[in-house]
Design a protein around this nucleic acid. Structure first.
Lengths: 269, 269
DNA sequence: CCAAAAGTGTTTCTAATACACCCATGT
DNA sequence: ACATGGGTGTATTAGAAACACTTTTGG
């Protein structure tokens, strides 16, 4: 076996490497199409929704699907290449929705089962996007319709029966997105991504209740949030009156912390 | 906006769909190469290691890299298509290492930055593999050498200076793998993937100590593991004598639980 | 007997929970 | 005044951490 000395980096010979690259043919490998799909989640009046579009083009014409599209691998007639996969995700989605300035975007997973798309081998990199309440989307190219669909219509949540069966394997991708969002609320400060820049503790609690589908103890939640360093920062302001009476709550903004110590665990009911 | 009724699934007209697919040309899209890379982690005598291979082919000839290779999108001269991405990962890796019967394999992330490979646009799906102590790998096709490299040689861990700088963006992939493993030990029962089928609580603790790079309180760890339902099951047997004296510890096997309730949190020192 | 390693008992402290209560505001 | 929602005090309980101690084995 190699000893320590042998583990030093080997040479990367410049001249030979240049000659190799000059003679390289990128068409030599079997192509697979690479797409990005975006599972955009938001909360509208206390109910979690996912953004879906109705396909106007084949295959699976007429079905609801995640907004997605092909990654631009190289500069071409359609436009410049996507510098990285998150750029592709935001490009594809902004063709269909007006996005907030700084949405939370994270990679969810990559789906490449043979036969998941009838046209050819398609590898889809799925992204999870969390956003505060966005305006209704407008349908884009190849799209008959675009809408925010409640999770419950896809069978997620307490006793919800599925009413929509998305195209391809997108039902599974949405399920993964929902589960990712639920578990990330436990140990990250991600819930604030569902809220506008300034919010009250009660709004934050409603995010948790909507995503987890379970009521939380308001008083203890309040204390726990304030006791978690870096989760929220006091703006010093109060929310405008709600109209129906009650004390005006303080306004907070997202703090610097990404991870929560300690986490907020959801346990059994 | 669509009302509830409109959200029902649209028709997927069979005849029209068939005609569309018959006329479809898979070469119409800009190709990108899709590869799988495997970050295989193990622990050898208390020290965490990652499997790397030294590249014999261009580009980046002579550098250490993660074992990886192109996904077989369709059946071809090299062999049948990979049914799914995890199959591709195991195929690529088993060409270089003798694998345990049931290794833990999970997707880590997908890397597609433009320019990360000088040949062409390459989208790499990275997998994390956790395994008990494996035999030394043998070098395979296009591989000058294959070896288990300590994480510390890549700069991970207490005050470790990097001695190996992997090819492409593989240093970042290994960093993601290490961080994923560290955090998954907290809230899943994954540590047992580093151990043989039967193990002692002390061996399990040594896994945590190696991955987290920090000593744990033996007595409290012992109790906490046994108090976590489904983490381990008593085999009823005792480990053979260690030779240097001391009580013979009980042997346990992995329990059914995937998630730990409550989690084992690593906090500050 | 002594050393070494496994495993248990016990105390102390911190954090989660539940519930009562006070505060600020609209009607 | 009183209803409504925000926010705090406090007792109870569960769990984490620290440390002393017992048990089982080899030399």
């Amino acid at each position: 076996m190699a000893d320590g000395r042998d583990r030093e980096d080997g040479p990367v010979s410049g001249e030979e490497e240049r000659r190799f690259l000059a003679g390289y043919d990128p068409r030599a490998f079997t192509p697979a199409a690479v797409t990005v799909d975006v599972a955009a989640l938001t909360i509208r009046s206390g109910v979690p929704h996912v953004l879906l579009v109705r396909r106007e083009a084949h295959p699976q014409r007429g079905r609801w699907a995640l907004p997605g599209g092909f990654v631009r691998a190289e500069d071409g007639p359609d436009g410049p290449a996507d510098p990285d996969l998150p750029d592709a995700a935001l490009r594809v989605l902004s063709e269909k929705t007006r996005l907030p300035a700084d949405p939370h975007l994270e990679q969810l997973g990559t789906y490449g089962r043979r036969g998941r798309d009838p046209r050819m081998r398609v590898i889809s990199v799925a992204y999870l996007l969390l956003a505060p309440d966005l305006p209704d989307p407008r349908a884009g190219r190849d799209t008959a319709e675009a809408a925010w669909i409640p999770w419950s219509d896809l069978g997620h949540g307490e006793g919800a029966r599925p009413r929509v069966e998305p195209a391809f394997d997108h039902a599974g991708i949405v399920a993964d997105a929902v589960e990712r969002a639920r578990s990330k609320l436990e140990y990250t400060a991600l819930a604030t991504a569902f809220l506008p820049p300034a919010f009250t503790i009660t709004r934050l609690r409603e995010v948790y209740e909507a995503v987890w589908g379970r009521p939380l103890h308001a008083a203890n939640f309040h204390r726990k949030i304030l006791a978690t360093p870096g989760f929220v920062e006091d703006t010093g302001e109060l929310a405008p009156s709600g109209g129906s009476g009650g004390r005006r709550p303080r306004l907070y903004r997202a703090g610097g912390a990404a991870l929560l110590h300690p986490p907020l665990l959801r346990s059994a009911p």
